[in-house]
């Protein structure tokens, strides 16, 4: 179980060239959260995730841990890298077998005492049994997704970030992915999902946010924004 925690991001701004992507925006995250973020293409959703993950430096921004005082993002970068796990839209498979990919993550977690059994358990948890020796790069999209989630499981992050995790998955893979995400939330991890298709996470999501005009808004806050959100959904369906 993850100990309960809260992390707040404040005043996050990021520009690329002359274009503003994020402007003075923020997000609050707590254990057991499952947040779905929607927004138009190019709205800055991926950038936001990468800033939360410690991978991309914002031009400005502060981070608040639990009840602490706000601190610069840069000062918290190491901590973010340590406690936040970011999954790429196309999960990256390291060279070698599925076993190596999972084992790689287990090696990096000092809390794991019995690596062999932890890896075996994790593989079983992801229903990847029997594929251990297979080259990770030759797995299907759904299987890769589950390998990435299994690596994340062994990492035991406070926050798990996913970029369009269910795009291009068939229904069965999608259900398995959702089941795995639910187990992350149950164990206390905060899960943040960027998706064009928030309906998929309907019952899982504890909050739906909309990234619009460089800012994060609560999707249900105003009728206007609900309409906006609907239009996003409609455009997606069309």
């Amino acid at each position: 179980m993850i100990e309960s925690f809260r992390i707040g991001f404040r005043d996050i701004s990021k520009r690329y060239g002359g274009n503003s992507v994020l402007e003075q925006t923020g997000i609050d995250i707590a254990s057991h959260d499952c947040i779905v973020i929607t927004g138009k293409n190019g709205a800055g959703k991926t950038t936001l995730l990468r800033i939360i993950a410690g991978l991309e430096e914002p031009d400005r921004g502060r981070v608040i841990l639990d009840d602490g005082a706000p601190q610069r993002w840069r000062q918290q970068r190491k901590r973010l890298l340590r406690s936040v796990m970011y999954l790429h839209q196309q999960p990256y498979m390291l060279a070698g077998s599925l076993q190596r990919n999972i084992d790689y993550a287990a090696r990096l977690n000092p809390a794991i005492a019995d690596r062999a059994s932890s890896v075996a358990k994790a593989i079983h948890w992801a229903r990847l049994d029997g594929l251990e020796a297979q080259a990770a790069s030759s797995l299907s999209g759904g299987q890769k997704q589950r390998v990435a989630l299994t690596r994340a499981r062994l990492r035991d992050p406070q926050i798990l970030l996913l970029d369009e995790p269910t795009a291009n998955l068939d229904n069965e893979s999608r259900q398995r992915t959702l089941q795995m995400l639910r187990e992350f939330c149950d164990s206390g991890t905060a899960v943040i999902i960027v998706s064009h298709d928030p309906d998929v996470f309907g019952e899982l999501a504890t909050r739906e946010l909309l990234l619009q005009d460089h800012r994060i808004r609560d999707a249900a806050e105003t009728a206007h924004e609900v309409v906006e959100l609907d239009s996003v959904r409609q455009s997606r369906q069309r």
Binding site: L55, L81, Y86, P91, L94, Y104, A105
Partner: peptide, 11 residues
């Protein structure tokens, strides 16, 4: 992503 995957896995 190879670098980032390794980093986010705690390397």
């Amino acid at each position: 992503a190879a670098w980032e995957t390794a980093r986010t896995l705690g390397a």
